[in-house]
């Protein structure tokens, strides 16, 4: 368990996270967060999405700076390729969420990570999005993530880090479980 004499440093403030967990289990209303993004169409399949503010702990917050994400489609799709495709951005979200989780869980378990690299791949049959075959789903037919991790731990301990990070990951949950999506228009 983490203690003040520990020399393990993955750059994660576990004490703060554990403190938050303790505080929020007695004040569930403060745990209600709302994450937001605003997206504007540019041209063709190109859009720019900006992430700036979010709500949590009972009040509005801003990121230190606003972040913007260009999304487009590659030339294979007769587009201009001004950014990653939206499905690639989903992979970015999943890989970065799992990786953050691995670092946090490792810190909590007193495991020093030296390097942690993931490759992620989502398979897709585009007959779905093109409307060629209505039995083919639009989304990924499967996602594979491969981790290469160098850490001061046994193979089983490293496997357990990766498994625990999936168990606690928001994006893993978003991808593996259904979510109600409501879209309206002015």
């Amino acid at each position: 368990m983490t203690n003040s004499e520990s020399t393990v440093n993955n750059g994660v403030n576990v004490e703060a996270l554990l403190g938050a967990r303790e505080a929020l289990s007695d004040a569930p209303e403060a745990a209600q967060f709302s994450w937001r993004a605003s997206c504007e169409w540019k041209k063709g399949t190109h859009s720019r999405t900006v992430v700036e503010g979010y709500y949590g702990l009972g009040e509005e917050h801003s990121h230190k700076t606003s972040f913007s994400f260009d999304a487009d489609h590659p030339e294979t799709f007769a587009a201009e390729d001004n950014g990653a495709t939206p499905v690639e951005i989903v992979l970015v979200g999943l890989a970065s969420c799992l990786t953050a989780g691995i670092a946090a869980v490792a810190q909590h378990r007193d495991i020093q990570i030296h390097s942690c690299k993931a490759t992620i791949e989502g398979g897709m049959d585009i007959q779905g999005i093109l409307g060629v075959d209505s039995e083919v789903r639009n989304g990924f037919n499967g996602i594979r993530v491969h981790y290469d991790i160098d850490a001061d731990a046994t193979e089983d301990e490293i496997s357990a880090l990766v498994a625990q990070s999936q168990k606690r990951s928001a994006v893993y949950d978003v991808v593996t479980n259904p979510t109600n999506v409501t879209v309206d228009v002015n």
Binding site: S159, A163, K167, Y172, T176, N177
Partner: peptide
């Protein structure tokens, strides 16, 4: 849920 593999992995470990 698509998490069966991880669920069984967690239990095995």
């Amino acid at each position: 849920s698509g998490s069966l593999k991880n669920i069984t992995k967690l239990a095995d470990l």
